[in-house]
Simulated scan of single mutants.
Amino acid sequence: MTQKVREIMTTDLVTVDPLTSVINVAQLMRRDDVGDVLVVDEGRLVGVVTDRDLVVRVMAEGGNVGNHTVASACSKDMVTVAPDDDVDQVIGLMREWAVRRVPVVEGDRPVGIVSLGDLAIERDPRSALGDISAARPNE
């Protein structure tokens, strides 16, 4: 029997609206120990912003970081899956699109996220990535 996305997805999502300051987003990432935040407008998924996006799309540009909203830093072209999709499908999408995280949606509403770390813990917990993903966060 094939494993479904809902069996391994993380459901404790961190979300913000598009007009949220990138500084607030970075603080949320630190507080919740996450590397990505879902951007949601009226309950609909409209983007994903990662810690790398903040560095490459905002900080590297210089200037006053506080003037930027998450709308200017997030990826709007996203690969998504549904909760009842097969886990193997997510793995294929991650390879094809070279992404480390895939939002899980029902319609256009986010209900979870699957990360490369989630997959490593589930499929190969003794691998280096599985060990790292399962380890406590750095303080």
Rank of each mutant, 00 (worst) to 15 (best):
E7S: 14
P83I: 05
I121R: 15
N24C: 03
G130S: 03
R44G: 02
R123L: 15
V49L: 09
D88W: 00
T20Q: 11
L116Y: 00
P18Y: 07
R126P: 00
M94H: 07
I91N: 01
A128L: 14
A135K: 12
T2L: 11
P18N: 10
V102M: 03
N138E: 15
R31I: 07
R57Q: 10
G92H: 05
V49I: 10
A26E: 04
D36W: 00
E106K: 09
I91C: 04
L93H: 09
T69V: 08
A120S: 05
V55M: 13
L45N: 10
R109T: 15
M78P: 01
S72D: 14
L93S: 04
T11N: 10
S133V: 07
D77W: 11
V79M: 06
E61N: 14
N64R: 14
L45Y: 05
V46Q: 05
S115A: 11
R6V: 11
L13E: 05
M9S: 08
G130L: 08
S75H: 12
V70A: 03
V34L: 09
R100P: 03
G47N: 11
V70Q: 01
S21D: 13
S133E: 03
D36L: 01
P83E: 02
S115E: 02
S127L: 04
L129A: 07
V34M: 11
T80K: 07
P103N: 08
I113E: 01
L13W: 09
V49Q: 02
V58N: 08
T80H: 06
S127T: 02
A73R: 06
A135N: 11
R44F: 08
D41H: 08
M1L: 05
S72C: 09
V99D: 01
D118C: 02
V81H: 04
G66K: 10
L13H: 06
V114L: 09
N138M: 13
D131S: 12
V16C: 14
S133N: 08
G117D: 12
V46E: 12
T69Y: 08
R123P: 00
P83L: 08
I8R: 03
T80W: 05
T69H: 13
L45K: 07
G62K: 10
V46P: 04
M1G: 11
D86V: 09
V39M: 11
E139F: 13
K4Y: 05
P83T: 07
M94A: 04
D32Y: 15
E42G: 08
M94P: 01
V58E: 03
E106D: 12
R126I: 06
